[in-house]
Amino acid sequence: MGKGGFGIGRLGLWWQLRKAAGQDAAPDVPQGTGPLLLVHVSPDARVAFSQVQRRLMRARPDLRILELADLTPAAAEALMQARPAALLLLGSDLPAALVTASGRRDVPVILAEARFQPEDSGWTLGALRRRELLRSMRAILVTDPASHATALRMRADRRRVTMTGPVAEIRDPLPCSEAERSIMAQLLRGRHAWLAASVPPDEEQAVLTAHHAALAQSHRALLFLAPRDPARIDPLAAEIEASGLVVARRSLDEDPTDDVHVMLTDGPTEMGLWYRLAPVTYLGGTLGGDDAAARHPFEPAALGSAIVHGPRTERFPTEWQQLGGAGAARQVADAEELAAAIAELSQPELIATLASNAWTVSTGGADVTMRICAPVLDAIEKAGP
C-alpha cells in the first residue's frame, strides 16, 4: 500500500476520533507507587485477561492494573497524565482514542490475542483505520496463521508480529485416589482399556458397537462406560449382559476382573480415576449433538488420555479447534467411524502420539500467557520507576 493509503487511514482515524463515544472522564487510577498498566479487553478475551493478570501480578506484585472501557479522546489524553508504563490490548478490538493517546506520549502498546479477518487487509475506510492503528503497536501477538498473514498484508512491521496461538483455559487435572488408581491398574495388567465419558442414551448403542469392534481387535479389551444419567446404570447393565458381554458395576463395588468386558462407572463421578486408567477416551454428546453436558476436552487431555469425538463440538469450539489443529484428537462422523477409530486405537504408538499432542495443547495456555506477558514486563522494566 502506498502513502496515499496511509493518508486516507490517518484521515479516517481523525474523523473517527472526532465522533468517538465512550467514557468522557478519565477513570480513577489505582492507588500505589508501582508501575501502571492500562488494559483494554475485548469480549472474547476474558479468559486470556484472567490468566495474563495472574501471571503479571506474580512477576510484579506492585503492578497497578487498570482495565478500561472505550474512552473519548479527551479522557484518554487525561489518563496519560498518570504516566502509564504500557497499554495492553487483549483481543481484536482496537480502541482508537487509547492507542492514539498512547502513541503521542510514547507509551508502548502491546496487542495480544489478536484475530484478524481477511477484510481487515482490504481498502475500506474501516480497514485503513485499523492499519493506521497497527503502526503504533510495539508488539502484535496473533492467535493463528491466517491472522499472522493478514497482519502482514495490513503492512504491520514483520519484526513486531508473532504468532503465539490462543490463550486456552488452564484446567487443573481432575483428582483421584492414588491408592484406588494403583489397585485398578494392577487389575488391568496391561489390558487395552478405553473410556466412554458422559454418554447420553442416544449414543449408548454406538459406544457398545465400538466396543465389539475393539474386542474383535483385542479380546481382552475393557470399556469403562460412564453414562451421563446414573439412572441408566442398571438398565444398561441388563442390556449389555443380554448382548453376551460381562458387566461390572462400580455402584456395587465390583472390580474389572479378567472376564469383565464393560465396567459401568457411577456416572459423572470419579472422572479423574477413569481418565488416568484409560489410554483412550470418547467424549459423549459429540456424536449425536446432545452436548449440553459434554465434558471439557482438556480433562482427558491433561491426564494423558487420547481423545475421540464426533462432529458436534459447539460447546467448546475453541478448545476443539486447538486440539484438531495440533493433531491431538480423532474426529469421527458417525457410529461406524467411531467403531473403526476405537479398534485402530488399540495400537500403543497411535495412542501415544494423540495423547502427547493433546497434553501439549491442554497445558499450552501457560506458555502462551508467558509469551504475552514477556513484552509487557519488558516495557514496564524499561519505563523505570
Rank of each mutant, 00 (worst) to 15 (best):
T164I: 05
T265I: 08
H261N: 15
A48C: 08
T360F: 15
L66D: 10
E203C: 01
G7C: 10
L71N: 00
M1L: 07
S177A: 15
L236R: 09
A214I: 02
R83M: 02
S305V: 09
I8N: 09
G310K: 02
I183E: 14
A293G: 02
L195Q: 05
Q186P: 01
P166F: 01
A82V: 04
T360H: 14
L338A: 00
S92E: 10
I183Y: 03
A210E: 03
R276Q: 11
D93M: 07
Q51L: 06
T313S: 00
R105K: 04
G285I: 03
F224P: 01
D172L: 08
L152Q: 05
R60L: 13
A20E: 13
D24N: 11
I240Y: 02
D70F: 05
R115N: 06
L345W: 12
G365T: 03
G288T: 02
A179I: 15
M57P: 00
R232Q: 13
G384D: 15
A76Q: 05
P95I: 09
W320A: 00
G284V: 03
T265H: 12
L377W: 06
M163C: 09
I170G: 11
D106E: 11
I380R: 13
M184D: 10
A48T: 10
A214Q: 09
P30E: 12
H40F: 14
G310I: 02
V99H: 06
P108E: 04
E319K: 01
G4D: 10
G272R: 02
E254L: 10
P175K: 11
S102K: 05
D367A: 15
S251T: 14
M137D: 01
A179R: 14
A214L: 04
W194Q: 01
A48D: 10
G126K: 08
E204H: 08
L141F: 12
L111T: 05
E349L: 12
R130H: 11
I307W: 03
P84N: 09
A59S: 09
G12L: 15
E336D: 06
P84D: 06
M80F: 14
I233A: 02
I140F: 13
T164W: 10
V47R: 06
A25F: 14
R131H: 08
V332H: 02
T281H: 00
E203H: 01
A193C: 14
P200T: 05
E180A: 15
A294D: 01
I351D: 06
P118V: 01
V262H: 10
L188V: 00
P227R: 09
V376S: 07
T265Q: 12
R153I: 08
A179S: 15
L17G: 03
T100P: 03
W359Q: 12
L56G: 08
G2H: 00
D120L: 04
L350A: 10
